[in-house]
């Protein structure tokens, strides 16, 4: 049976938005600051921790469970940059089974193996697939596994839509003991309006933005080296951005229950920003207090 050790944090966001990159860099920054960190990839793609461990193979928990009746921690984990313990939950063969239940089973196994008691982490980061697609994927925020959740989003509408869905899930589960929201991490900030758009969405939902991560060539470069920015380019500005995020997570325990937008509100909000972006891009001059 598991006693909770350290801070358990779930990081959600739409697929392809940069969750794993962000999570891995936060893990690396926390490790660099001297903390013991476990990162658990909760995605059937099982590539959450790749850049923490130089791209080396790591059998997933579910693949190992399929092959062996008895699983040991060393079978399913690898020590990555800065001593981060990397674990990938994995998933069923594509097209069959239930990936949500897979995450459930993987987390149960970690508790069974007493990973948290024995490794004594200061932080456990769960990098969870995309949107809240079903009850299974909500398990980390629902069943008291994570204390806080963070949402990674870009200024693309579909990413915002996914973030709003996650707010709905947190709003539903937090009152009955589920995780609360630590904040939004704005990722891939490039366009002139991106920051303002995410800021406005967060404000409408009553949640803080804990950091803005600019789109940077250093991220792509580091990933091609199979490393986090913290490891590959520690002196870069981008590395400092991730360190700042890590410091926020470390020093700040604030959390909120978000107020998600309902269907018509979200549509209205999107239309408002559609108009504004068009005006910015086509050079219409008027009062732009939010940009």
């Amino acid at each position: 049976m598991s006693e909770k050790q350290g801070k358990h944090i779930a990081i959600y966001g739409k697929g392809g938005i940069g969750k794993s990159t962000t999570t891995s860099n936060i893990s690396a920054a926390l490790a660099e600051a001297g903390y013991r960190v476990i990162q658990v990839g909760c995605d059937p793609k099982s590539d959450s921790t790749t850049i923490l461990r130089g791209g080396n193979d790591l059998p997933t928990v579910l693949d190992t469970l399929r092959e062996q009746s008895k699983v040991r921690l060393e079978d399913i984990s690898a020590v990555g940059f800065g001593g981060v313990l990397c674990i990938e939950a994995g998933g069923p063969v594509p097209g069959v089974g239930c990936a949500g239940r897979g995450i459930n089973a993987a987390v149960e196994l970690l508790q069974d193996l007493k990973v948290f008691e024995e490794y004594k982490p200061d932080f456990v980061l769960y990098d969870v697939l995309g949107d809240v697609v079903c009850g299974g994927f909500a398990v980390p925020i629902r069943d008291g596994i994570a204390d806080r959740a963070f949402v990674v989003t870009s200024s693309d509408f579909m990413a915002v839509f996914a973030a709003n869905n996650l707010f709905k899930a947190i709003n539903k589960y937090a009152p009955s003991g589920g995780a609360r929201l630590g904040g939004v991490i704005a990722n891939s900030i490039q366009a002139s309006y991106s920051k303002a758009l995410i800021h406005d969405f967060a404000e409408e939902s009553g949640v803080p933005v804990i950091g803005y991560v600019p789109r940077s060539i250093t991220v792509a470069q580091s990933e091609l080296y199979g490393k986090t920015v913290i490891e590959a380019l520690p002196e870069s500005e981008q590395a400092e951005v991730y360190r700042k995020l890590a410091r926020y997570i470390d020093e700040n325990n604030d959390s909120v229950i978000p107020k998600p937008l309902n269907g018509p509100e979200l549509k209205k909000w999107a239309r408002k920003w559609g108009d504004r972006i068009f005006e910015v891009e086509t050079g219409v001059v008027q009062k732009m207090e939010a940009i």
Binding site: C98, G100, R101, N104, C134, G135, G136, A138, V139, R142, D143, K172, Y173, P175, S176, G177
Partner: peptide
């Protein structure tokens, strides 16, 4: 169980 119905929320309420 497979469906992950949130029974606890109903209990708390």
């Amino acid at each position: 169980a497979i469906n992950n119905d949130d029974i606890q929320a109903v209990v708390d309420e």
